[in-house]
Simulated scan of single mutants.
Amino acid sequence: MQLDLNLLAALDALLEEGSVTAAAERLHVTAPAMSRSLGRIRRTTGDQILVRTGRTMTPTPYAIAVREQVHELLQQVRAVLAPSRELDLATLDRTFTLRWHDSLVALAGPALLAAVRERAPGVRLRFLAESHTDTPELRRGEVDLEANAGRPGAPDVRAEEVARTRHVVVVRRGHPLTRGRTLTAARYAAAEHITVSRRGKLDNAVDEALARLGLTRHVVAAAPTEAAAFAFVRASDLLVTAPEAITRAADLASLPLPLELPPARVYLSWHQRYDTDLAHAWLRDLARDALAAAGNGGAER
């Protein structure tokens, strides 16, 4: 059977008004058009729906029995086809999953959670650790927002640059490089380095910049996160090159990087299915503000 949803609206109006003329006025159609709709409803249901008693129309027992159900169904259809464009944060009950670089969670996560709880106490945030391999959870709808240095290449994934920062050299306080002469590219290359890479890479854009100057560096280890690298740096004479904003709470010394290196960028990414999702758009705005206010947090290399 092929159903016409327009008949549901006509049936609701007929049952509410108890009159073909009144139902036609309610739906802004002509009385003959409403009469034709009533005829189709009668053929579809096998019931008269409204019968004439004198000068009025009386609903049948079947019509009386389904009146509330018809009205509820019509409201559900309208909610699906014309969703509300208002967002009630006070009653919003939803869990958002965010896969962010670990340093971004540390830098911007607390501010984001505080802003969310202040406005929408029923919302929960799940921060997931980044994997050492690329994962499709964003496209599958299992992750709501990603934030890292990678700009997604998939056409159905949105990406917006929300922050950027320069790189600096991070060493322990009292490190020999913090005393005396200016840190040159040659002195920088001669030191022992630790890299940051969730994939365990021992080289990155720093090595390319040094190679252009005819220099190479000695990398002795790779750490999966900046926090782990900072622990090695704090306990040794190793140095790490990292985005400046990350060093603020690290209790370490930072020096200008004596190389030309592109800034570390942060991209906020989401799947296009959420473009018109009001709650998701609200969270994106808060995340964007938190990441910017954090002073351009760390990024994957």
Score class of each variant (00 low, 15 high):
120 A>M: 09
219 V>S: 02
277 D>C: 14
203 D>P: 06
158 R>G: 09
169 V>M: 10
187 R>C: 01
14 L>F: 01
202 L>N: 12
270 W>F: 13
190 A>S: 14
41 I>H: 09
169 V>I: 13
215 L>Y: 13
102 D>R: 07
119 R>W: 09
190 A>D: 10
166 R>D: 12
58 T>M: 12
236 S>K: 03
217 R>D: 11
61 P>T: 00
149 A>M: 12
96 F>Q: 03
190 A>R: 07
212 R>T: 15
29 V>Y: 06
276 T>I: 02
229 A>Y: 00
46 G>P: 02
231 A>I: 04
146 E>N: 10
127 F>L: 05
71 H>C: 05
59 P>Q: 02
123 V>Y: 04
95 T>S: 08
256 P>I: 06
255 L>Q: 04
203 D>A: 15
74 L>D: 06
70 V>A: 13
177 L>D: 05
45 T>C: 15
186 A>T: 12
125 L>W: 01
218 H>E: 12
95 T>D: 12
84 S>T: 14
169 V>K: 08
7 L>H: 07
300 E>Y: 09
260 E>T: 10
225 T>I: 07
284 R>N: 13
64 I>N: 13
264 A>S: 05
37 S>I: 04
83 P>M: 14
49 I>T: 03
137 E>G: 13
272 Q>F: 11
163 A>V: 01
301 R>H: 11
75 Q>L: 14
116 V>H: 00
220 V>E: 14
239 L>I: 07
193 H>A: 01
83 P>H: 13
4 D>A: 12
